[in-house]
Structure formats: structure tokens, C-alpha cells
Computed example of a mutant assay.
Amino acid sequence: MSRDSTASLPAGLGRRDFLAAASVGLSGGLAGCTGVFAAEGNNVNIAGSSTVFPVTEAIASSFSEQNPTVNLSLSKTGTGGGFGNFFCAGRTDINNASRSIADAEIEQCGNNDITPIELQVATDALTVVVNPDADWIDCLTVEQLREIWRAGGATHWSDINEEWPDEPFELYGAATTSGTFDYFNEAIIGEEENHRSDYHATERDRTIVQGVQGSEYAMGYFGFSYYSENPDSIKAISVDDGDGCVEPSIQTAMNGEYTPLSRPLFIYVAKESLEKAAVRDFARFYMKRAATDLVSEVGYVPITEDKRDENIEKLKAAIEEVTA
């Protein structure tokens, strides 16, 4: 999908507004992909995590301003859906991921001669949200969260605290193909229990926002970026991991206070795709921008300069191998 060059933002249009408009041009379906390695050299095809999507979207928009002849295709498929259906199948160059690649996915990639290169691009404060009218709640312990979200757990607010409304939960969360689901399941539910299945599961984080906005008794979870877009219409819940209530924020994620829901975010680049100049240029551009305020503008913690340099060296070594 082509992008027109934009030398400067229109008067009165902020970066976030610009990105919202630009997403129409950057976001394209991947149904027409017939094999990324056979594609034209100026294509960069990206799928995967909806959590990482805002970071990649922002950086892709900035890249397109300077590289208008490069065709970028960017889609939300979920981390697992991106790996299984696109990246490890050789249909995309890059997969956005809100968790590390799984062993089975590495095996699938290997069977298709795809070599994934892991690059951390940000840190997220995975955020639990409720409706602003839910004035009875501001903080939950990890144990209370587990009871709400585990299979066979609580069904009503009053099951958690008898002083809370005797009303059933209306729950919205990530689909099972999502890295956010995997991380929340591991950090909150644990290995001895299963995530409940009787909830509204979706890959569309804004659907979760709308669901929580629409019901006083709703709760959802997603990446911090989607809360930071809607701080007046949904309420973030602080989490008590044993040392008191800590609110989700860029600062608490950065300093390690917000546990256990702070997590690294990644992109995975197919080493073989680095044969294409467009993918090489975009990957290097991405690493440089991932250490800047552009990442914090969309609601995540930028990587450190040391991590940036480590990523660039990792890319440099891979590029030298495929272009030698």
C-alpha cells in the first residue's frame, strides 16, 4: 500500500491526530500477499500484535514521510495470528509481538526457512480498566484479578467484596491469538488455572474500550496506549502485587514498580527479508526511533540507548550475512 510523502503536519493537526488519519493509508489487508520473498523490493509487509501496532504505526508514518516510494502494509492480526498465519508462513517481513516467540512458532518458521530476529522496541504497562461510574473500585490485588479472570472464578462484583454491587461482571479482553492474552494469562492466572472463556474476546482493542465505556459493571484489559487515548472515558485500575497499589503509567513501568503487568514489546524481522533494501532501511530506522519520545507519545516506554545500539548491532550482523 503506497503512502504519500508528508513534509510537515497540517496546521492545527497534532501528531496523534495525524497518525489516526495516516493509519488508513498504512493499514492494509494481507490477503493478497503471495509470498514476501517474491514481492517487489520496495514492499515492507507487517502484521501481528495490536498492542505493538501504535508504535509501529507511528514509526512507519515517520518513515513514509522520508521514504514515499516504499510501500508499507500494516495489519493487526494478534501476535500468535501474525506468527502462525503470516510471518512464519513467509508472507510478511516483520511481526509485531507483545510476547516472545514460542518454541512451536520457531519450529514453524524453521520449517519454512524463516529466521526470526528478535528486537525489543518498547515497554508496556498492561492496563486493567473499568467504567468511570464504577466508583467502588480503584485498586485490585493480583489475587482478586485472578479470581475475576480465572475459569470457574467469581461471577459478580460482590463475590470479590461483599460491599460491592451484586451485579455480574461484563468482561472484555484479548483473544486467545493475542500476545496480550498470553502475557495476562501467565502473569495473573498462572499455570494452575485457566483463563475464563465466558468473556468478550477480541483483537480490536478499541472494541474493548467501547465495551467498558458502555457498562458500569464492565472490566477489560489491554496495552497502556489504548488507555492513554481514553483517560476521561475509562478508568485505569491500580494493581497491588504485595507492596501496595501501583497505578499503570509510563513512569511506573519504566522504574519497575508496576508489577506483574509491565512487559517488553518486540518486533521480529525475518532475516531473509533483509535482502530487500526497503526492509533493511525500515528496520534500522525503527531501531533509532524506538529510543525516542515518539514511543512515549503513543503511550509506551522507549528502549534505552544501550538496547537501541544492541539492536542495531544485531541487525548489522544479520544484514552482513544475507548481503555478503
Score class of each variant (00 low, 15 high):
17 D>Y: 05
48 G>M: 01
90 G>V: 08
26 L>Y: 06
120 Q>D: 07
292 T>N: 02
138 D>L: 00
52 V>S: 05
27 S>E: 12
23 S>R: 15
300 Y>P: 03
145 L>E: 07
116 P>M: 02
10 P>G: 11
74 L>K: 03
16 R>V: 10
151 A>W: 00
191 E>N: 14
126 L>W: 07
58 A>T: 14
291 A>L: 02
191 E>M: 07
236 A>K: 13
243 D>L: 12
44 V>N: 05
271 K>G: 07
17 D>A: 14
46 I>F: 02
21 A>M: 14
286 Y>E: 06
34 T>F: 03
28 G>T: 15
34 T>P: 00
244 G>P: 11
156 H>G: 00
157 W>A: 04
245 C>N: 10
21 A>C: 02
53 F>T: 05
82 G>W: 01
15 R>C: 09
243 D>W: 04
313 E>A: 13
271 K>Q: 15
264 P>M: 06
203 E>Q: 12
95 N>D: 14
32 G>H: 13
207 T>L: 09
2 S>P: 06
1 M>N: 11
236 A>H: 10
197 S>I: 05
22 A>M: 13
258 Y>S: 08
90 G>P: 02
95 N>Q: 09
61 S>C: 10
24 V>G: 08
299 G>K: 10
155 T>S: 11
189 I>S: 03
49 S>C: 03
268 Y>R: 05
258 Y>E: 09
45 N>Q: 12
323 T>Q: 14
67 N>V: 11
179 G>I: 08
75 S>Q: 09
277 A>G: 01
149 W>Y: 13
31 A>Y: 10
74 L>T: 03
204 R>M: 07
139 C>W: 06
125 A>I: 08
1 M>A: 14
155 T>W: 00
5 S>V: 12
273 S>I: 04
231 P>M: 03
96 N>L: 12
117 I>E: 04
160 I>N: 06
20 A>Q: 15
104 A>I: 08
273 S>D: 04
53 F>W: 10
99 R>G: 02
220 G>C: 06
232 D>C: 01
61 S>A: 15
117 I>W: 04
262 S>L: 05
165 P>V: 11
238 S>L: 00
37 F>D: 11
35 G>M: 02
312 I>N: 02
322 V>A: 10
210 Q>V: 01
154 A>P: 13
134 A>K: 06
